[in-house]
């Protein structure tokens, strides 16, 4: 109950905080962010007005500009569009993350480690494709998933949010105590989806955090079980839903 109330409060604050950002955003190549009103822009320079006064920037130091509202007559649209287009660079991104997978067990409160390595190519802002792999643990099992990875940027220039989805297959094996109980463990399809946030730094390595949902399917065969009347064979198909919380680096 209290967690839900807290959730509502924080969500409201987040929306409010974001709503206050009605200023133009000037992203510099040194990964700084300038919030102000763009007064003029040409090939050489840009003038940004703050509450405290005006400030000139060299156009060559600007990465991209996000305009809120209408542009003034002194803003060269051609230069503006050119900056924003060039601001998105097509390149490979690699992310290495560690964290936990939560869920399962009694009251779905089990927590086990997880890590992932992702390589994506940024075709467009909303189309970034790649491959991911990793290592994950469950209560009785371990697995190595390999999956296609899709990513799209939300409100992002250097820092910002993104969403992701993945689909693939996991190779699974049992932990030592379960290997004695189960005859055969087979992996299965894995699905992932979630959101993340990249915190841009001045260096080439940014910090990333993600939270998402993971579904892993697997199958097991138990040994023939003997009873007074005979034997029977048990096969189990298991679906495991988890929440993933990870932090890591992006470079």
């Amino acid at each position: 109950m209290w967690s839900k109330i807290l959730l509502v409060i924080l969500t409201t604050m987040a929306v409010t905080a974001h709503a206050q950002a009605d200023k133009d955003r000037v992203y510099l190549k040194n990964k700084s962010l300038i919030l102000g009103k763009l007064v003029s822009l040409d090939r050489d320079s840009a003038l940004v007005r703050f509450n405290s006064g005006d400030h000139w920037f060299e156009t060559g130091d600007i990465h991209s500009i996000n305009i809120k509202g209408n542009t003034g007559a002194e803003v060269d649209r051609g230069v503006l569009d050119s900056l924003n287009t060039a601001g998105f660079k097509k390149k490979f991104d690699m992310m290495l993350q560690c964290g936990v997978m939560a869920g399962g067990g009694i009251n779905n409160r089990d927590v086990y480690p997880a890590m992932s390595l992702t390589l994506v190519y940024r075709f467009k802002k909303l189309l970034q494709l790649g491959l991911a792999t990793g290592y994950e643990q469950y209560d009785d099992y371990r697995n190595m998933p390999v999956y296609l990875y899709y990513k799209g940027d939300l409100f992002r220039h250097f820092s910002g949010a993104y969403y992701y989805a993945g689909a693939g297959y996991s190779k699974m094996w049992g932990k030592p105590h379960i290997e004695q109980e189960v005859d055969n463990i087979k992996g299965g399809p894995v699905l992932k989806a979630g959101v993340g946030f990249i915190f841009a730094s001045k260096s080439k390595v940014d910090f990333v955090t993600t939270v998402g949902w993971s579904r892993q399917h697997m199958e097991m065969e138990y040994p023939l079980y003997h009873t007074w009347g005979g034997e029977w064979k048990t096969e189990v198909s298991r679906t495991m839903d988890r929440l993933e919380f990870k932090i890591g680096i992006c470079f």
């Binding site: 969500t11 399962g104 839903d241 929440l243």
Partner: peptide, 17 residues
Amino acid sequence: ALLLCFGSILSGCGDNC
């Protein structure tokens, strides 16, 4: 906020056999 939002639905994450 996003983290807490997901965390609130943690209780629904379990196993089905």
